[in-house]
């Protein structure tokens, strides 16, 4: 396995439905409509909806994150083989039971179709199915890093069984197969990208180097690194080295 090459195989989901348990094939996904594990004591409930971006004029809590579903099959973050789902993305929203929204600066609660611009790099496409995970905390919760991370972790835990099945899909059934090579262009001007990201507290944080692409487990908060610079290759970056907690 070449350490400078990342192979991403994408599986395009034609149908996403609710079922009694998780079931993934090369073109369809079934998920339960509730968590199959015990929720943290601080949580009142977590609800799951399947949403068509072309028909989503209903009220939501503030959008905490938009996430892809992707998993490592061979190698580690940045090289080897990654399987990813297209045609489906996840939106995480959150508030407490009295309506206090989980955000740092500015809330996006309101009607979903008015609060997100679909089709951008950071948002689902209009043709995608959106798995909308809404997490509601009990009132008088403590708004701190630990609480917010727990909310993100709960959503991640709900998605992990999809990743476990995604690892098992046959590579030859993939709809897209892209190889990214970290290339060098000797003799050309040497250029780097510097990305300044949030690192000050609750809902103003980023997790780096999760075990799964765009996951949470085993990731390290940039705050716990005292915001010190970290170097990533382009392939590590596009393999989901960062999970935003903003």
């Amino acid at each position: 396995m070449k350490k400078n090459t990342l192979n991403i195989k994408a599986f395009s989901m034609q149908s996403v439905k609710f079922g009694t348990e998780y079931h993934l094939t090369k073109n369809s996904l079934e998920i339960p409509d509730h968590a199959l594990f015990d929720l943290d004591d601080r949580l009142k409930e977590m609800t799951i909806k399947l949403v068509d971006p072309r028909d989503c004029h209903f009220e939501i809590n503030t959008i905490m994150d938009v996430m892809p579903i992707s998993t490592k099959v061979l190698g580690e973050l940045g090289y080897g083989l990654t399987h990813t789902l297209t045609g489906v993305n996840v939106i995480l929203t959150g508030a407490d039971e009295t309506g206090v929204q989980l955000h740092e600066f500015g809330s996006s609660d309101g009607y979903l179709d008015q609060k997100i611009m679909f089709g951008r790099d950071g948002t689902p496409d209009l043709d995608d199915v959106v798995i909308l995970i809404d997490v509601v905390l009990k009132e008088n919760f403590e708004f701190n890093r630990d609480t917010c991370e727990m909310v993100f972790r709960t959503a991640d835990k709900f998605l992990q069984p999809i990743r476990e099945e995604l690892k098992m899909l046959m590579g030859r059934d993939a709809t897209d197969d892209i190889e990214y090579v970290d290339t060098q262009n000797p003799g050309q001007p040497k250029v780097a990208v510097v990305k300044e990201v949030a690192g000050q507290g609750a809902m103003y944080d980023n997790i780096i180097f999760p075990k799964e692409p765009a996951g949470i487990e085993k990731g390290i908060s940039i705050i716990d690194m005292d915001n010190m610079p970290v170097l990533l290759t382009a392939n590590e970056y596009r393999d989901g080295a960062i999970h935003a907690l903003v």
Binding site: M67, T123, N185, E196, I222, M228, A244
Partner: peptide
Amino acid sequence: TTLHHFHDPLVREVSNDPDVDFLGVILVGT
């Protein structure tokens, strides 16, 4: 969002330009 980082347009553009020798991404907190 996490999806934005996954698709990051800045990394995509700079890492694919043959006129520059791309070194990498330095991620730094605030």
